[in-house]
Structure formats: C-alpha cells, structure tokens
Computed example of a mutant assay.
Amino acid sequence: MFRRIEAVADEIGFFFDGRPLRAMQGETVATALLASGVGVFRSSVVSGAPRAPLCLMGVCFDCLVEIDGVENRQSCLVEIREGMDVRSQNRARQLKQGTISCR
C-alpha cells in the first residue's frame, strides 16, 4: 500500500517485533514501518482493535510503539536509527509499584 517514491538517502537496518527491516535514513519510525508493509502498530488497550498511524503529525497517538525498551513513543515523531529495536504495543502500560503517590 505504501511505498517510497525513490531512494534519496542511505539505507539503514532496524527491527520490528524481532524482524529485520530496512529504512531510509531520515525517515520517521512510522514512515519506515509503513513503507516496509507493517499495517498494525499496536492494539487498543480497551477493545484490542488493531491500530495504525492516522495523522502522522503527533496528534492522534494511534502510532504508539515501544522503541529501544521505552513504551508509548509516538513513532511519527521519532527519526529511525540504525539498529533501533521497535516493538508493537499490545497491552496497557504497566506501572511499577511505588512510582505513583496519591498524597
């Protein structure tokens, strides 16, 4: 569905859910995933429905992924880097005990 018009930058490698993929340097994570044929980035924490980027400008939060171990990153706002480990999010974020105080 999505494809690059032409290669205009150096190609780099990254991983999505453990699968090696290629991207063009300077692309966002969302653009690199879409151009690689990835159609589902996460599932809704409420219904489990598949989600993918909608706005590609940081407004909708449908493109949330885990990047290098950090959850809830907006893939449309993060530039892809060589060796980056991107993972889909299929659950609500887990909070660690003792990190939130209700005083």
Rank of each mutant, 00 (worst) to 15 (best):
F2I: 15
I5L: 11
E6A: 09
V8H: 04
A9R: 12
D10N: 07
G13C: 04
F14R: 15
F16L: 01
D17M: 04
D17R: 01
D17Y: 07
G18S: 05
P20Y: 00
L21C: 03
R22Q: 07
R22Y: 03
A23H: 02
A23F: 00
M24C: 05
Q25A: 06
G26R: 07
G26T: 07
E27W: 09
E27L: 10
T28W: 03
T28Y: 00
V29G: 02
A32Q: 03
A32E: 04
S36Q: 07
V38N: 13
V38R: 10
V38W: 12
G39A: 04
G39L: 14
G39Y: 00
G39K: 15
G39C: 12
G39Q: 05
S43G: 13
S43V: 15
S44E: 12
V46K: 15
V46L: 08
S47W: 03
G48T: 09
A49F: 08
P50Q: 10
P50S: 12
P50H: 04
R51N: 06
R51D: 10
A52H: 10
P53G: 07
C55M: 13
L56W: 01
G58D: 03
V59Y: 02
V59H: 07
F61A: 00
C63R: 01
C63P: 03
L64T: 02
L64V: 09
V65W: 02
E66H: 02
I67K: 09
I67C: 08
G69L: 10
G69S: 02
V70I: 13
V70T: 05
R73K: 13
Q74G: 05
C76R: 03
L77P: 00
E79F: 05
E79Y: 02
E82A: 06
G83M: 09
D85H: 13
V86H: 11
R87T: 13
S88H: 04
S88I: 14
R91D: 11
R93F: 08
Q94K: 15
K96L: 14
K96P: 04
Q97K: 14
Q97T: 13
G98S: 06
T99A: 09
T99R: 13
I100Q: 06
C102Y: 04
R103N: 03
